[in-house]
Design a protein around this nucleic acid. Structure first.
Lengths: 237, 237
DNA sequence: GCAATTATTGAGATATCTCCCATTTTTTCG
DNA sequence: CGAAAAAATGGGAGATATCTCAATAATTGC
């Protein structure tokens, strides 16, 4: 019923409970991606994981619990790895561009994760916020470096997030190709009034897209500090 | 159970069948807005409309059918009226700004409709496409008038739509005030490399926001032609 | 006012879901 | 190996959904 997924692979050498739990999480990803969160049923997740219905409840309180856990793991894995992959980039705008492109390309190589991210973003605020925090850190850096003059407030960040997610969705639907990340990066930089040439250069420079590993093997230590949270001011009129 | 809504009001002088149908549609709007499409149940819609469960099925095949009908009516009503309200504006960018601001302010004055629009957009492509078509017409006009130099393709339009919807969502959540429409308009115009001053002027000029009527009384004739569909080219790499 | 037509009703057949829990199977470890 | 602990099982009670249909009520036209 299922080609065992990344969580299962990670748990290969742990005890049985952990392995079953991992099976359930992989199954949940598949079902959430296929049916959406609301339409997904615990029965279907258990069936997909090839465990009995009751087993689910040994490991998770209910559907919400597994959704939160899956989404948190995915968000953490991706943001951590992107962070690590661009540890040596200093320029805030380049970091933004790299992260955006890496994120979209990665998520579209793992369409199930991609769909889960998109679907989860709308009703798991913690996941949304985590990604916002990371993005925000790079934008703030760009501002401190004098490249962005605009105020970076919640409305702006929210808008940029929606653009990145729209690009990812287009990529997942097949409406956009591998250029999606570059295109949306350039649009965002234009929006921030970065000089068009520079925006274009940043967005379209060839970069080494790392293959992200999912999930990170036995929880590695972070290489760079985890993106200092940025305090967003209230929206100004 | 329900303060009869706009569809009911419109159908006041029609026959009983039409009135019941309208009650169901108003109820559906409430339930969809409150619970979301997936979680909404036919039972709940019938209860809200204060009709028997079986009555629903006399009028609609199933939940999807009423969703499609409701969304289509809302989209048509809003786009038609915005079109009418700006019949005398020629400038493409000003039309875009006006429509965006009017749309967001209207939908946030009718939060139920606003939420339905947002929720419907993600899985009723026809609704999404209708709004895209209207928006696209104004942008194309701006391009023909020499104000936009960028290519207006599907990716760009999709991105702009996502920005407008994000602004609407922020407004509905209460995270943004009445300035949301102006802010997102300005961001879009910046993104299109309109000179910042002009972008600011267009986005923040005082405009007379009309109170939109919902739904249009006995189906009025259109004043202006219905926004010629714009053929979108394939996305270029 | 009365028959014909049209609309509504609500109980119920069927299905699916969630969640529990007594029982069985598997793993661990002295 | 064999007993204790841990994990998994799957049947089933109880909710809640969808959709149907024979019966009932309201409306219409003569």
């Amino acid at each position: 019923m299922m080609n065992s997924g990344p969580f299962t692979a990670e748990a290969r050498h742990q005890n049985k409970s952990a392995r079953t739990r991992a099976r359930l999480m992989d199954a949940a990803v598949q079902v959430f991606a296929r049916d959406g969160f609301e339409a997904a049923s615990v029965n279907e997740i258990a069936r997909m994981a090839e465990v009995a219905n009751g087993t689910f409840y040994v490991h998770f309180k209910d559907k919400d619990a597994i959704a939160v856990e899956v989404a948190a793991r995915i968000a953490t894995d991706i943001t951590d790895q992107i962070d690590r992959a661009m540890a040596d980039i200093d320029d805030g705008l380049e970091r933004f561009g790299f992260a955006t492109r890496q994120f979209i390309e990665f998520a579209s190589h793992q369409p199930q994760w991609g769909w889960v991210i998109i679907r989860a973003a709308s009703f798991l605020p913690q996941m949304h916020r985590q990604m916002e925090t990371h993005m925000c850190a790079d934008l703030e850096r760009g501002r401190r470096q004098g490249q962005i003059t605009a105020d970076i407030d919640a409305f702006l960040v929210d808008t940029i997030m929606s653009m990145v997610f729209a690009a990812l969705a287009a990529r997942l639907r097949g409406d956009a190709g591998p250029e999606a990340g570059s295109r949306v990066t350039e649009l965002v930089l234009n929006m921030l009034n970065i000089p068009p040439q520079r925006a274009h250069a940043i967005a379209w420079q060839t970069i080494a897209l790392k293959e992200l590993h999912l999930p990170t093997r036995p929880r590695q230590e972070r290489v760079s500090p985890p993106a200092e949270p940025v305090r967003l001011g209230p929206i100004q009129i």
